[in-house]
């Protein structure tokens, strides 16, 4: 944990992309922190830079300038391999379109991050079973993603993100592909997970979804501010 106690902390974070000879700025000096147990939401329209920010926070991308710390560790200077390690062990991702591997059943999908971590089989099986039970899909383990509903797929994706006990759960438009009933179901699940102590940060362009979070930020043209 950082001296400040934050799980994620950015300071004057900048990101720009080079398009030909031109440098296109996307993020302008983002200062941001998330404490353990927080449930945060970053809102913003398409092209505002929220996905870019999430990619940096998730160690999938690097900032052009500025500082970024996860649990107090400076991320900017880490190598690709160290970033991959960090991603693997401390960050859980939930993607908009679930991104479950179609050839693996739900159990195997949830098990995958533990296999990357080299966790022994018996421990893996116990953790996956517990997590799937906890998320209400304990009886769907043998089904491949195409055989279950959208809500169950997203639950499997959340289970996959949480099974390795990450420091934070990052969700990229987690309800973007769901109908209203399933959206409510998934948001209830996030509420429940947060009450159980999980730190969650989601990005969305829907105010209704963001309203379920306890802290909210608005991002526009690469600048971010917290909404009271």
């Amino acid at each position: 944990m950082s001296p400040t106690g934050s799980i994620l902390e950015t300071s004057a974070l900048h990101k720009s992309y080079r398009m030909g000879r031109e440098e296109v700025p996307v993020l302008h000096g983002i200062d941001f922190s998330l404490e353990p147990g927080d449930f945060g939401a970053i809102m913003g329209p398409s092209g505002s830079g929220k996905s870019t920010l999430l990619n940096i926070l998730g160690c999938l991308d690097r900032p052009t300038r500025g500082e970024y710390r996860i649990e107090g560790r400076q991320v900017s200077g880490l190598s690709e391999d160290e970033l991959a390690d960090l991603r693997s062990e401390r960050i859980g991702f939930v993607f908009q379109s679930f991104q479950l591997l179609p050839r693996l059943n739900l159990f195997e999908n949830v098990e995958l991050p533990l296999r990357y971590l080299g966790i022994p089989k018996a421990e893996r099986r116990r953790k996956v079973s517990e997590m799937m039970e906890r998320l209400g899909i304990g009886d769907r383990g043998k089904h491949v993603p195409a055989e279950v509903s959208g809500g169950q797929r997203q639950r499997a994706a959340v289970a996959r993100a949480l099974v390795k006990d990450p420091a934070i759960l990052l969700a990229d438009e987690p309800t973007g592909n769901l109908d209203s009933t399933t959206t409510a179901e998934v948001l209830d699940l996030f509420d429940q997970l947060n009450r159980e102590g999980n730190t969650i940060l989601l990005i969305t362009h829907e105010a209704e979804v963001a309203s379920r979070a306890r802290r909210r930020w608005k991002i526009l043209d690469g600048r971010m501010e917290e909404i009271a």
Binding site: L60, F95, L112, Y116, K164
Partner: peptide
């Protein structure tokens, strides 16, 4: 490509 990207994001090492 997308699936490979997902597995990399989930922590699959490049050697894997």
């Amino acid at each position: 490509v997308r699936l490979i990207g997902t597995t990399r994001a989930l922590g699959a090492p490049s050697v894997l």
